[in-house]
Design a binder for these strands. Structure first.
Length: 425
RNA sequence: GUGGGCGUAGCCUAGUGGUUUAAGGCGCCAGGUUGUGGCCCUGGAGAUCGAGGGUUCAAAUCCCUCCGUCCACCCCA
């Protein structure tokens, strides 16, 4: 095997495409319903955009970015997440002049240099939605709601929504002092990672899954008790909004996220079974991000979902795909004269909007039918010398093994009347 | 970056030192006489046994290194 797909990447084979078309279709539909317009940003951006937004001390920036120099010498990076680029585009195109909030969604590849494992790839697809320019907590509710409805409309069930607030620059510093005070006496019993976190990124202490750190983390004072007079009511409105919409959630004071830009609301959605790499959607508010990127203070809130993980769950939950694609018609021919006419027939069918394929080369009728069967086609058109003479074709219905002779020029209308499958896509 | 499992044809698997010129199943191609698939039968193509090095008279089989893959940690979608 001379070449293989690079580590952590996969080919999405034709048999998988049904899932992808389905998820993309539902995404487009739901985004339209909620008024989130599509935007496509470049696959790569200036490296500093991500360093600035995601946070210098995050894992993503420290060790997971695909960065490179282009021939002009500039530092570029394959996007490791979606929000930063959306905010950049918001600024670049003066979208603050549009009615606020600006609702956008994107769908495309994300790149992170990580060790691959179940549900984790170096290139994967994310669908993300962002609402920029409105600080009302009702927008947080809309975003969570959108994520929740999207996953449910796909047919996923047994999902758990975790919710928290990580405060803002006004209240978080005070909380971190309290948090460190809580951890300080237990430093010796913590895992090595947590001892590092204590100094570098204390909020992440709460995220540790090591057994040794659980008691200390569980006993930590909740951020919610230290929210300021802006964040506390904001969170309350979010909770009430979700309750009003009938969206169940679990408040989880240990939910923090690995990107530095989050403020106030953060949330994750996981399948009930739990397990590693289980988060299928995550997001939150990022009120300081646009300003950090050089814009005027502008609030924002959004989420992203991983399509591969969604599909993993669609499969494990046995969600059936609607519209299994209509099979094409197979055209079989016998002899050189019929071959030429078959090519014409093939094209007539296709021009008429009917999917059609044939075998090529000098194959026996038996071989051609064998192939038609293997392809799972519903109908086969057979053209031989007899048919050429009489200006007809044989229409064979594969499942019944029955066939009828129809006039050559009637083939298209027979197909249109519905006895032959019209091509879906 | 750390730890563990695994790497034999497109896919699944047998073979753990000489009976292997590497076997079987699926799939693919062809045939089973005149222009007819699905079942069955027969035949065929297809493998540098992940790569490199070493031990040995002899290696898919033992040792080392590397690579890949899967799972877990970390982190995240």
């Amino acid at each position: 095997m001379p070449f293989k797909a690079p580590r952590g990447t996969v080919d999405i084979m034709p048999v998988e495409q049904g899932y992808w078309r389905y998820v993309e279709g539902v995404a487009a539909q739901v985004c339209r319903l909620y008024g989130y317009q599509r935007i496509d940003t470049p696959i790569f951006e200036e490296t500093s955009l991500f360093a600035r937004s995601v946070g210098e001390s995050t894992d993503i920036v420290e060790k997971e970015m695909y960065s490179f120099q282009d021939r002009g010498g500039g530092g570029l990076t394959l996007r490791p997440e979606g929000t930063a680029a959306i905010c950049r585009a918001y600024l670049e195109h003066g979208m603050h002049n549009l009615p606020q909030p600006v609702r956008l969604h994107y769908l495309g590849p994300i790149f992170r240099y990580e060790r691959p494992q179940a549900g984790r790839y170096r290139q994967h697809q994310q669908l993300g939605c962002e609402a920029i320019g409105e600080q009302d907590a009702a927008v947080d509710v809309e975003i969570v709601n959108l994520a929740w409805r999207f996953l449910h409309r796909l047919g996923l069930g047994n999902l758990v929504l975790y919710l928290n607030s990580v405060g803002c620059p006004r209240c978080r510093p005070g909380y971190l002092v309290v948090l460190k005070d809580h951890y300080e006496p237990h430093l010796a019993s913590l895992c090595p990672e947590c001892r590092t976190r204590f100094h570098r990124n204390p909020l992440r202490l709460l995220d540790c899954k090591k057994d040794s750190c659980q008691p200390v983390a569980d006993g930590a004072p909740p951020m919610l008790d230290y929210l300021c007079d802006s964040c506390a009511p904001h969170f309350q409105v979010v909770r009430e909004g979700l309750e009003m919409l009938g969206i169940p959630f679990q408040s989880n004071h240990r939910l923090v996220r690995g990107l530095d830009y989050y403020t106030k609301t953060v949330f994750e959605i996981q399948p009930g079974g739990g397990g590693a790499q289980s988060t299928i959607a995550g997001g939150g508010r990022y009120d300081g991000l646009i300003e950090e990127l050089g814009g005027r203070p502008t609030p924002g809130v959004g989420f992203a979902t991983g399509i591969e993980r969604i599909i993993l769950n669609l499969k494990s939950q046995g969600v059936a795909l609607p519209n299994p694609h209509a099979s094409p018609i197979f055209v079989a021919y016998l002899g050189e004269a019929a071959r030429r006419d078959a090519l014409k027939l093939l094209e007539d069918l296709r021009q008429g909007g009917i999917a059609a394929v044939s075998a090529f080369g000098d194959r026996s009728l038996k071989a051609q039918l064998r192939q038609a069967n293997a392809l799972g086609v519903s109908h086969t058109l057979i053209l031989g010398e007899e048919e050429l003479k009489t200006g007809t074709v044989l229409l064979r219905t594969m499942a019944q093994g029955k066939q009828e002779r129809v006039p050559r020029e009637a083939v298209l209308s027979v197909a249109r009347e519905g006895s032959l499958p019209l091509r879906g896509d």
